[in-house]
């Protein structure tokens, strides 16, 4: 394959990764931004989203599109609800103490993961995409003194993958509007800036925390529902998204929403390009090195605010 089309393919594939990653990392970032909680169980909420998507889609058994839409609504709701309950039953009881929170979320990680193994089982299970057609992509070529289009071998994407990118962008825009334009968003931002003061103004901080924790988990679940027709639901699938989300959130700046999106695109696309033209291991090395460099030279992340 020529360099140009090959690069374009790598970028497109990277963009799909980036879209899912942005959603998942955003969940982690929102939770940290508002609650200052490092949620180690985040990847398992992602996994749970995928598993519920499979369950909903197979239980309905109707047209794949119907099952998918139902999953896209139900999975985030259920996962978000579960997370909110976990927050009220566990995290609030330990007063969000940083060390104990990490240990508690590690515990949640194992409970969710092994609970899924015991019920859903160890197999990877697919969900049919609502629509999926292969779209060959054209490429420009300078031939005989003029520009012409042609269809290079292997340069293609599927309509579903394009949909994933668009859907992720839409969800992120909706999240941004929610945070900046609604009363609930205002309350969240107030809690983020100073939870003691927010409480003094009559904001039910406890409920806001439960809501935010649920929202973070729901975002991960949405990412998972989008990805499950491409990948499959599997009880161990939460591990990689968790690591990558941490990488993205650290580079972008913990709690910074635009920073998270920028970092997700950076990591997703560079992972695609580097692993195609060099090696997948080098892509991982580069991402980890970027984390190290950010921590050394800009600990607050690309767009994060300095701690006071």
């Amino acid at each position: 394959m020529d360099f140009g089309p090959h690069l374009m393919l790598a970028i497109l594939e990277g963009a799909v990764t980036a879209a899912i990653l942005a959603l998942t990392a955003m969940g982690l970032s929102v939770v940290f931004g508002v609650m200052r909680v490092v949620n180690v169980a985040h990847g398992e909420f992602y996994m749970l989203g995928a598993v519920i998507a499979w369950f909903v889609a197979t239980t309905l058994g109707a047209h794949p599109a119907l099952g998918f839409v139902a999953a896209l609504i139900l999975a985030p709701l259920l996962v978000g609800g579960l997370a909110a309950v976990a927050d009220m039953l566990i995290l609030q009881r330990i007063g969000y103490d940083p060390e104990r929170t990490i240990v508690a979320t590690i515990g949640m990680l194992y409970i969710i993961q092994q609970g899924t193994l015991m019920t859903f089982g160890p197999d990877a299970r697919p969900v049919a995409p609502p629509f999926n057609s292969r779209i060959p992509l054209p490429w420009l070529e300078w031939a005989e003194g003029k520009l012409s289009f042609y269809y290079p071998w292997g340069l293609s994407i599927t309509s579903y993958k394009l949909f994933v990118i668009a859907a992720a962008a839409l969800i992120l825009i909706a999240l941004w509007l929610f945070m900046t334009r609604t009363r609930a968003g205002l309350v969240m931002r107030a809690t983020q800036q100073d939870s003691a003061m927010a409480q003094a103004f009559g904001i039910p901080v406890g409920r806001v925390y439960a809501l935010v924790f649920g929202l973070g988990a729901a975002l991960a679940a949405m990412g998972a529902v989008l990805v499950v027709p491409i990948q499959q639901a599997h009880y161990l699938m939460g591990h990689d998204p968790l690591l990558l989300s941490f990488i993205v959130v650290i580079i972008g700046g913990l709690g910074s929403l635009p920073g998270t999106v920028i970092a997700a695109v950076l990591i997703g696309v560079s992972d695609g390009v580097i692993s195609v033209f060099f090696s997948p291991t080098l892509a991982k090395i580069t991402a980890t090195l970027a984390v190290a460099m950010v921590l050394v030279f800009r600990p607050q992340g690309l767009l994060g605010k300095k701690a006071h």
């Binding site: 394959m1 594939e13 990277g14 990764t17 990877a124 071998w153 990948q231 161990l236 699938m237 695609g272």
Partner: peptide, 26 residues
């Protein structure tokens, strides 16, 4: 995700021999 590896398949390939394992094989 695997699509990014496939351009390395030479065009004159007659047979692809694949032995991927793990949950991502589908």
């Amino acid at each position: 995700a695997f699509t990014k590896y496939f351009p390395q398949i030479p065009r004159d390939t007659e047979v692809i021999y694949h032995v991927m394992v793990g949950p991502a094989v589908l």
